[in-house]
Each structure stands twice: as structure tokens, then as C-alpha cells.
Nucleic acid binder design. Structure first.
Lengths: 125, 125
DNA sequence: GTAAGTACCAACATTTTTGTAAGTATCAAA
DNA sequence: TTTGATACTTACAAAAATGTTGGTACTTAC
């Protein structure tokens, strides 16, 4: 009677949400917002390499999933704030864990990669 | 003097590794391998929707990063096993946490999404 | 008056990702 | 003997992601 979500199942709705939070920019947006509320431009400067378009799109998707909240002040020039919802904060924490785990292992990973390419060119047998 | 990795920095090498483990299939491969060693076909059946091509590609990338190990038995018909490395297991655990966090919130997310689209069509003011 | 900042959107172009179909060599079951 | 399983690879095609450019309407600083 109970429906148990399962990402390994193709039809499971969790797939799309997971794709949003693990998309190229989605996860970085969540991490960047962990420090607190940020407005659009500040967010963009914070995340190296995002284009306006991609940032907007990522923010919309995360907003639709209830991960972040958009607060538009009705002033001119425009002023819009973004912040994590409680659920967004929960998810962001895990994404940050993931990023930090990778950062901690980065040196080892880089060495490992290099040792493999050297092994390839080193012996032609 | 110390180099501190930072995903928010465009040039940081952690970006590519993060992209591999959070790619459409990369994360699911890691999760699927948490139960233990699996061979190619079993892995494919386990992960709903992967094509052979994408599974191969994801496995290669994760192997290059040292997340999984490929063990090819020299027999015919071919027999190849895949399993997590210690680092891969560490990363997989966090990816699973992320998936489970989303699965746990899925019902709420779905309701939230629906309430938004209803709100859009409900009032034309 | 000119330039820059604000938070976007839309059209279009490009790049990347992902999928599909076919082929490889061998063995075992029907 | 045809079929299916094994673990892939390659070429090609389609789809999705991402980038680029230009525009909006207004304000402030120079």
C-alpha cells in the first residue's frame, strides 16, 4: 500500500529532483546560499563561471522544487533576494558534504589520474 | 602556501570530479554498487533506463577518478566485475544520503509543485 | 550625457550529452 | 541452426544543456 521512492527505478519522480540539485549549477547554487540570503548578482559573482541564463534557469528549477525562495522587492532598480528553504538547507548540507569529500580527496585523485596516463604511455607491450 | 580546493571556483579541479559523480548515471552507478560487486549486465539491469553506451562511459569516468575498480576475468564469454574503491564507497554513501533525503521529501515536493501550477491557472488577476 | 549596475527574458547558435543501431567473438541452450 | 547471453566499440542521430547577444526600465555616479 505504501509507495517507496527509489532512484534506481526509471519511473521514480525522485530522479528529476535529483537531477536538478546535481545539475552543473544547481548544487553550486545551494552551496553558495548556505552562507545566507544573496541577491542575483552577488550569487552570480560567487559562483565562478555561471552565465546569467543558467543561473536564472537553475534558480527557477530549485524554486519549483521548493529548495529555495525568491523574494522580489518591488523597487527600481530591481532587488531580488534568494534564500534556502528548510528543505533546501537540508539538501544543501549533503551537497556540501559531497563537495568537501571530493575536495579532500582531490590531490589523491589527481595523482591517480596522472599515474594512469603515464602507465599508458610508459609501456607499449 | 596551502592550496584549498573550492568548488565555487571555476578553475578548481574538484568541479570535474563532482560532475562525474553527480552526472545523470554516475551517482546511480555508485549507489547500485553499494550492495557489493556487480558485473556489467547486472549493473545495467539494476539501474533503470541506462543504455549500454552510457553505462560504459560512466564506469570509465568513475574508474579514472578512482571511485570504482574494474576486474576483467580473462574468459570467454567475457566476465567483468565492478566494485567500489574505499573512496568510492565514501562518496557513494553521501550520494545515497542525498537520494534518500530527496526520496523522503518527494511527496511534499510533488504537492508543492502541483499547488504552484494550480495557483497559476486559478487566478487570472 | 555616458557608462554602469540591477534582474531579468527571448532568440538564436553552439556544445555536450545521451540514445540507437549495428558489429565483434565465443559459448550454451533450444 | 537459430537464439540469447556476455561486455563491450563504433558511427551516426537526436535531444538537452549551455552560451551569446541584445533588449527592458530605471537609477546612480562620473
Amino acid at each position: 500500500m505504501e509507495f517507496v521512492p527509489d532512484v534506481l527505478n526509471e519511473k521514480c519522480g525522485s530522479r528529476s529532483v535529483l537531477n536538478h540539485v546535481t545539475s552543473r549549477w544547481g548544487g553550486l547554487v545551494l552551496i553558495a546560499l548556505m552562507d545566507g540570503t544573496l541577491r542575483f548578482s552577488a550569487l552570480r559573482r560567487r559562483i565562478g563561471g555561471v552565465s546569467e541564463r543558467m543561473l536564472t534557469q537553475s534558480l527557477r528549477l530549485l524554486e519549483e522544487d521548493g529548495m529555495i525562495e525568491r523574494i522580489a522587492h518591488q523597487v527600481v532598480p530591481p532587488h531580488v533576494d534568494y534564500r534556502l528553504t528548510p528543505m533546501g538547507a537540508e539538501v544543501a548540507r549533503i551537497v556540501l558534504d559531497l563537495a568537501q569529500c571530493i575536495e579532500a580527496n582531490l590531490e589523491g585523485i589527481t595523482r591517480f589520474r596522472n599515474s594512469r596516463v603515464e602507465a599508458r604511455s610508459g609501456n607499449g607491450s
